[in-house]
């Protein structure tokens, strides 16, 4: 049985191919002008490496914002379900996923089979997304990559009071003008960011309801300071995934494809 999952996001498109329950290949490209083109190109690239053709696919499921338009996929499923399913397959003890990207933040609870139990999402406000960290690191005059380690260098993280990214940026500029240390401000920023994600997760009771492991995905997962603060807030270890987290959506879609194939086609 050969199945595929395809994830067309706003910045990248991903395709992943599974054969008999094992990943045989995947690929990631930057998006083309239309979701249809992105899907076609990334699937072709992934297939090429395996020597397979489109006709060899038994079932394909699509996800991501362009998921409805892909003609070779037989079903489309929300990226939240796929993301949770993919992460759970990588590490079956996972029950909670927090995905913090450049434009949104999602908290996901999955059951013992990887099915979506509950979720919360913020895509309305830049506070609590990667954009917040981008804005603040620019105000601090440091690279985004330098921000995370500051948590481990500071003995006195400063509290960032304002939630709105625009006003928090001012707050940081005033702190700098007062002569406060970049290390302490940066550590405070990581703390504030973790607090936002924790609040979102708490809105679906992820903090109390966590029955297994917790992972954090998305660009902000690379910030070790945010991760450290989240571990403190959740009072739990945050585990990492054995595969590129970017591919979780496509992986989850392929897993759904396998499930639908078994249910609809093979009987």
């Amino acid at each position: 049985m050969i199945v595929a999952g395809i994830d067309v996001g706003s910045l990248t498109a991903k395709a992943l191919i599974m054969k008999d329950g094992e990943i045989i290949d995947f690929d990631i490209i930057t998006v083309r002008p239309t979701p249809v083109q992105s899907a076609g190109d990334v699937m072709e690239k992934a297939l090429n490496k395996t020597g397979l053709k489109m006709d060899d696919l038994d079932y394909c499921v699509s996800t991501g914002y362009g998921r409805e338009q892909i003609s070779f996929s037989r079903k489309s499923i929300s990226e939240i379900s796929c993301h949770g399913m993919g992460a759970h397959w990588c590490r079956p003890s996972i029950r909670g996923v927090i995905d913090i990207g450049g434009q949104d933040c999602k908290a996901i609870i999955v059951d013992k089979d990887g099915n979506l139990d509950n979720f919360a999402m913020n895509d309305k406000c830049a506070a609590g997304t990667g954009r917040f960290l981008e804005i603040i690191s620019k105000a601090l005059g440091i690279d985004l990559a330098e921000l995370g380690p500051l948590t481990f260098k500071s003995n006195n993280p400063l509290k960032i009071v304002r939630r709105c990214s625009v006003f928090a940026e001012y707050e940081v500029i005033f702190l700098l003008a007062e002569g406060k240390d970049v290390t302490d401000i940066g550590a405070g920023v990581n703390e504030a960011m973790a607090q936002r994600a924790f609040s979102l997760a708490s809105s679906i009771n992820l903090n109390n309801k966590l029955t297994g492991e917790l992972t954090v995905t998305g660009g902000v997962a690379k910030n070790v300071g945010v991760i450290k603060n989240l571990e403190k807030l959740f009072d739990a270890e945050i585990v990492s995934l054995p595969l590129d987290p970017q591919i979780m959506g496509a992986l989850g879609a392929a897993l759904f494809a396998r499930r639908y194939y078994e249910k609809e086609v093979r009987v």
């Binding site: 309305k124 406000c125 830049a126 954009r131």
Partner: peptide
């Protein structure tokens, strides 16, 4: 004409 801004957040 009016180009409507759908994001409330200033950053978005």
């Amino acid at each position: 004409k009016l180009v409507e801004i759908s994001s409330q957040c200033s950053v978005f």
